[in-house]
Write a protein that binds this DNA or RNA. Structure first.
Length: 576
DNA sequence: GCCGTTTTCGGCCCGACTGTTTTCAGTCG
């Protein structure tokens, strides 16, 4: 069982215990779940190497939960969990995803109305039964119905790639209002999480009334949910909620810190404050009633005895320790990318020509771009045959000569995205592949192979003497398609052994590898590249999502090949 | 159920908002 699978069971147990009103157990189980999710190492591996004792060393895991983990690893099941489920046969996962429904609500609904899932909930709300329950009313029922509607539409979350542009638009609009000084969207957007629940923008302003007036009348707004002096919430036509909070300048840093860190990061930083006899809140850091700081984030972290850290890593997965010990890695920056190694052109299924893509790369400040059209057997993507690949190589040589003459200053590399067949073959012969600068290989069909076969398939491709990069290594598409069944640990180890780089696909519905995979790769010394997989020149701008993903995986310049200068990059590929 | 440079027992993060109440419980971030 994976860390995430075990974490999910513990999280559900936390809620089941909360429904039973068990004291303190809910928090303990939730803490174990969060700890496993951000561990960066496989709990199964930890157990194999060090047994029960080593499990107890995981933060939040004690004697009991270590036994539970052991049972899950050994049998794939947990008796205690089964018993809990039997006594409360409720679809916890589904019900808690409805906005405004929490453990206590579930408890009452189950006891009084035998509600077990979202379908029951909807039926009860529609028939008016919920409004008649004690401590509920017409408005509570209405709220649940609204929550259900939203749940159905989007399950409550949106892709970062859809939301970030909207958030930036709102920021720009607020920035133009006279008297507005600081503007920053915090929350999961500032951490650049893959998916976003709402937009939370913090500002300082001299005329709050005016800000709220303009904010509630933006063309994106579909509904005003609440409007106050310091906080206003609207629903946007896109579906997502957007908040604006107006803060006094002396509290701004504290609020930014508070609304940026994920929940666990905030819990940890507050505990550290308490240990020091301080109190940390969104209004500042205090000793008794005396305010010690709050104007900037730097100030707060300094008082807590640690370095300031990048928002993307504030998830209570080791960053606090590192910030205390001054051992935070220098993660890559958004401007560190020197080239894009995975783009498509008209030669296969892209929209633009090679020079159009190259010039778009130049505009982004790149030193090189690698043209990697589909080749071989992938007919859906208009893959090029051998003859066409040779033609394209000639064309690129010609263009490079032309670009050099005109001093355009970007080098076009010859590449191809090959398809890994179900048995691990590469669908282009060596005599063609050896003429290319870089060879990409990816899985594009037969997604449902059993785990062992899929893993062996990819490793076989990595052993191929010409293959340099594995594209979108897990194949997942957010909200649409789960990852293929693979043993990623084995694949990462093979990448290290055979000198193959793993792609971080920057397309915002792929973001593949995931942050925790990247962290593992960094730990193993596996090299990665961040690529857009652009099929037109505008999609070259998606690079920032891949960089964000790499930052959340703690990647540094030494880990990401396309932050390297051209010569060093090509040397590494030649070294295979 | 977990945890400890004040503790192996007695604590567990904090505040706003909402809807229901008339002093508070539940949810959310």
């Amino acid at each position: 069982m994976t860390n995430l699978e075990i974490a999910k069971i513990f999280r559900e147990m936390a809620i089941l215990y909360e429904i039973q009103e068990a004291p303190f157990k809910p928090r303990a189980y939730e803490r174990v779940a969060a700890s496993l999710e951000s561990l960066g190492r496989n709990v199964s591996e930890i157990y194999e190497q060090g047994g029960l004792k080593s499990l107890e060393k995981i933060p939040g895991v004690g004697k009991n939960t270590a036994f539970h983990i052991e049972e899950l690893l050994k049998t794939g099941q947990l008796k205690l969990y089964k018993q809990l489920k039997k006594s409360l046969p409720i679809d916890i996962d589904e019900l808690t995803s409805v906005l405004g429904v929490g453990p206590k609500t579930i408890q009452v609904l189950y006891k009084k109305l035998k509600i077990k899932n979202v379908a029951d909930l909807e039926a009860a709300a529609l028939s008016g039964k919920i409004a008649k329950l004690p401590r509920f009313g017409a408005q509570s029922q209405e709220k649940i119905l609204k929550g259900l509607e939203f749940h159905k539409k989007s399950r409550g979350r949106y892709l970062l790639g859809h939301v970030l542009p909207i958030a930036r638009e709102i920021e720009n609009r607020l920035r133009k209002i006279p008297g507005v000084d600081k503007v920053e969207t915090a929350g999961s957007i500032r951490r650049r999480q893959e998916t976003i629940g709402d937009i939370d923008t913090l500002i300082t302003a001299k005329h709050p009334e005016k800000v709220m007036e303009i904010f509630t009348h933006m063309p994106e707004v579909s509904e005003i949910l609440s409007r106050g002096q310091t906080k206003t919430t609207v629903r946007l036509k896109f579906g997502i909620q957007a908040d604006v909070r107006i803060l006094p300048p002396e509290d701004y840093g504290a609020a930014l810190q508070y609304f940026t860190g994920d929940k666990n990061h905030n819990i940890e930083t507050r505990k550290i404050a308490i240990k020091k006899g301080l109190k940390l809140s969104e209004y500042g850091i205090f000793r008794g009633k005396k305010k010690l700081g709050g104007k900037t984030e730097e100030e707060i972290y300094k008082i807590l005895g640690m370095n300031w850290m990048e928002p993307e890593i504030r998830t209570a997965s080791g960053e606090i320790e590192a910030a205390k010990n001054d051992t935070l890695p220098k993660i890559i920056g958004y401007g560190d990318i020197r080239g894009n190694l995975h783009v498509h052109t008209k030669w296969s299924d892209g929209l633009n020509t090679i020079p159009e893509m190259a010039l778009a790369g130049k505009k982004l400040g790149y030193e090189y771009i690698s043209i990697s059209d589909h080749v071989g057997t992938l007919h859906i993507a208009h893959a090029m045959d051998e003859k066409k690949v040779l033609q394209q190589i000639k064309e690129i040589d010609k263009l490079n000569a032309e670009f050099a003459k005109k001093k355009i200053g970007i080098k076009i590399l010859k590449s191809a995205e090959t398809n890994i067949s179900a048995d691990g073959n590469i669908d282009l012969p060596h005599k063609i592949l050896e003429k290319l600068d870089i060879v990409l290989a990816g899985v594009h069909d037969h997604f449902n192979l059993p785990k062992e076969k899929m893993t062996a398939r990819i490793i076989r491709a990595m052993k191929h003497p010409n293959v340099n990069i594995i594209t979108h290594p897990t194949g997942r598409i957010i909200f649409q398609r789960p990852a293929y069944q693979i043993d990623l640990d084995k694949i990462l180890k093979a990448a290290k052994e055979f000198g193959v780089a793993m792609e971080i696909n920057a397309f915002f519905d792929r973001l593949d590898l995931r942050d925790e995979d990247i962290k593992k790769a960094v730990g193993l010394g596996v090299k990665m590249v961040i690529s857009t997989d652009a099929h037109n020149k505008n999609q070259m701008n998606l690079m920032e999502y891949g960089v964000a993903q790499a930052r959340r995986g703690w990647a540094t310049e030494k880990d990401i090949l396309n932050t390297w200068p051209l010569e060093k990059l090509l040397d590494w590929f030649k070294g295979k």
